[in-house]
Design a protein around this nucleic acid. Sequence first.
DNA 1: AAATCTCTCTAACAATCGTTAGAGAGGCCA
DNA 2: TGGCCTCTCTAACGATTGTTAGAGAGATTT
Lengths: 202, 202
Amino acid sequence: MSTRDKIMDVALNMFSERGYEAVSIRDICGEVGIKESTLYYHFKNKKDILDSLIEKFRTHIDGLLAHVDELTEKPRPKKGKKADDISLQMMDSYMIDSYLFDPFCNLMLRLMMIEQFHNEEIRELYEKTLFTDPYEIQLSVFRKLSSAGAIPEKDVEWIVKEYHSYMTMLTFKYLLNGDLTEKRKNAYYREVHEFMTRRFLA
Amino acid sequence: MSTRDKIMDVALNMFSERGYEAVSIRDICGEVGIKESTLYYHFKNKKDILDSLIEKFRTHIDGLLAHVDELTEKPRPKKGKKADDISLQMMDSYMIDSYLFDPFCNLMLRLMMIEQFHNEEIRELYEKTLFTDPYEIQLSVFRKLSSAGAIPEKDVEWIVKEYHSYMTMLTFKYLLNGDLTEKRKNAYYREVHEFMTRRFLA
DNA sequence: AAATCTCTCTAACAATCGTTAGAGAGGCCA
DNA sequence: TGGCCTCTCTAACGATTGTTAGAGAGATTT
């Protein structure tokens, strides 16, 4: 990993735990193992590190969103049970593994959670990433499931709101709360599975 | 308002926006209009301000929880429609006005949201206040509504989870996101009302 | 071989950080 | 009146903050 990447990696870990202002240049350099002036060779100032992280995150989620579009276009092979099909389709498209569980994304969400209250740019990205985008993806997928006859059309709007609120609550409760441990990941998965079977199998 | 109270008030406003470490003693004193040494007459150090805020919040929510117990004990007068009755009872017991909309509580929730990632005491209080306590209150109220015949008993567990996730999502989306404007409050109320009528009137 | 480019270092800068010693002013009790 | 308590002030402390000038080492290009 390049020095620049190391700096961004260490900075993200520290910013997402203690907040941007609470972390000093010397904290970051100490952990990376370089002198302060070396950091200023790679970044023009402290703010530039934060901006670079945000830019990297924007690019990253743009890629994920494009991938979701592609995934939801392709019809999936039919499963034995309707509920399983819906469940898998949603899990895939929400990309839990490559989004909420992904270390870089997870830490960025924590950082945005901390910094949103005094940084309007971060606040907008935070709202888009955690509320707007997921809702639109979920709406799109449920509409396709409805077209395919898996869900009655008149129920789509309510189902997607129900689903969206449940996933959002679980995200804040398990994935943006304290350390991201295996235990919390498992609790998240268990509740998602419980919701899906209750809602679509019963 | 006493100097001590002014300090706590100003500190809470600053901490909840920029985070504890990012706010300096001089920032607080400048806003209050005192010298730094005066602050140290009222608080033994910076951490003591934070601890005092947490202590005040604990006392505050203990009072609210006691009040909820009292409220949910008393049977409410019957309304014309079942849905209205459920709606009002829930709104009352969740105490939106005196909890989520209350300036002190709202700012404390923001502060806990920021500081939870590197302060275990705050993390536990955050989880209790936003997830554990609300869920238990909601469960208790729905059980009483079920006993009174308003809801079939077998549905209680699912309904309370559905309700809880919806309220939690709305809280993060509208009340713990950017400034707490009238617009956001109204959007929150509108969505709560929409949920209640859809879920219990349809 | 000479010059240039890339990267890291030493060493320091003014500004700001949390905190403290000690003086002074006003009210209350002896 | 004299002594004490409450509250605020002036002035400073060493430590840490973000940032910079400039040198040096190694690789690449001329």
